[in-house]
């Protein structure tokens, strides 16, 4: 349920046009003093419009030229970000494929790895770690392991971390 008064819009118009209460017909003033709806409308319209003027006078919006150029800058950045999104997806795919390939290679050569590891352990025991590292295969194995451990997470971080 809601009440309406046929003079409500007239009272509001008088406030908006700064005619309220002095420059309105006395009948409207008399009506408003006895009508709860029009009295509320007059109260709120006067209070809120005055409040609006106070707020407008203290508002310090940035200069229009600045807003325009900042909007351009932001639009440009967003467009660049949107344009680079497929590249990022390709980078993530590449990093995942690399990791998969490295894992597959490692799995295929695991027997060989185990034998090299046994040789490492026995070599380290008998002649120290230097023997293993000076053997070409051992050094290659070590470098591959380090690459997988360090480079793959780094590549994934670079690809995903940008966003």
């Amino acid at each position: 349920m809601h009440g309406e008064c046929c003079f409500e819009s007239e009272v509001l118009a008088a406030v908006v046009e700064c005619r309220w209460p002095e420059r309105v017909e006395s009948e409207l003033r008399v009506h408003a003093s006895g009508c709860a709806i029009c009295a509320d409308v007059a109260l709120l319209a006067v209070a809120l419009r005055e409040d609006r003027e106070v707020l407008k006078s203290i508002a310090a919006p940035p200069e229009s030229g600045r807003v325009w150029w900042m909007a351009q800058l932001r639009a440009r950045r967003e467009a660049e970000k949107a344009a680079s999104r497929p590249i990022t997806a390709a980078q993530v795919f590449g990093a995942a494929a690399t990791a998969w390939f490295a894992g597959a290679c490692f799995g295929a050569s695991s027997d060989w790895f185990r034998s090299e590891f046994v040789r490492l352990a026995s070599g380290a025991e008998s002649a120290g770690i230097g023997v293993f590292l000076t053997s070409g295969v051992g050094l290659l194995l070590l470098l591959a392991a380090v690459s997988i451990i360090i480079l793959v997470p780094a590549a994934v971080w670079l690809a995903v971390g940008k966003d």
Binding site: P61, S64, V67
Partner: peptide
């Protein structure tokens, strides 16, 4: 056009 529109509306919108 934007600057003109902004100048007309910014303070009111801020309020």
């Amino acid at each position: 056009s934007f600057r003109s529109f902004y100048d007309r509306t910014a303070r009111g919108l801020w309020a």
